[in-house]
Amino acid sequence: MRINDHPILGRAKRGRLVKFALDGKKMTGFEGEPIAAALMAQGRKSFGTYGKRGTPRGLFCAVGKCTDCVMTVDGLPGVRTCITPLKAGMHIETQKGLGEWKLKKKRK
């Protein structure tokens, strides 16, 4: 849920509305807000699973310290979604455990 009007902070200033993909599904969010904020605004709290037990995990510290919110972003696993700004066209995937590298190999 978004907080648009706030008694102290006034109206929210946000970036432009952009499209991104979550596990292949089309979604929208505001450019520049953390990926985690865009997901939680739409009610999504589970960002991946723990490697050992496979139970869900999500945002915990929101300041880039705890790594509980990591997801695979544009093929790069372990991206801290709480401090990574959303950009148009991002491919975001829920991550199992440590995830997999899906980056295209660069030619040497």
Binding site: S46, L59, C61, A62, C82
Partner: peptide
């Protein structure tokens, strides 16, 4: 379980990111 978070995290989401 997702939804358990630091109070500071809640503050960050509410007051900075407005979610």
């Amino acid at each position: 379980i997702p939804g358990v978070m630091g109070a500071g995290a809640l503050q960050t989401m509410m007051n900075i990111h407005r979610v």
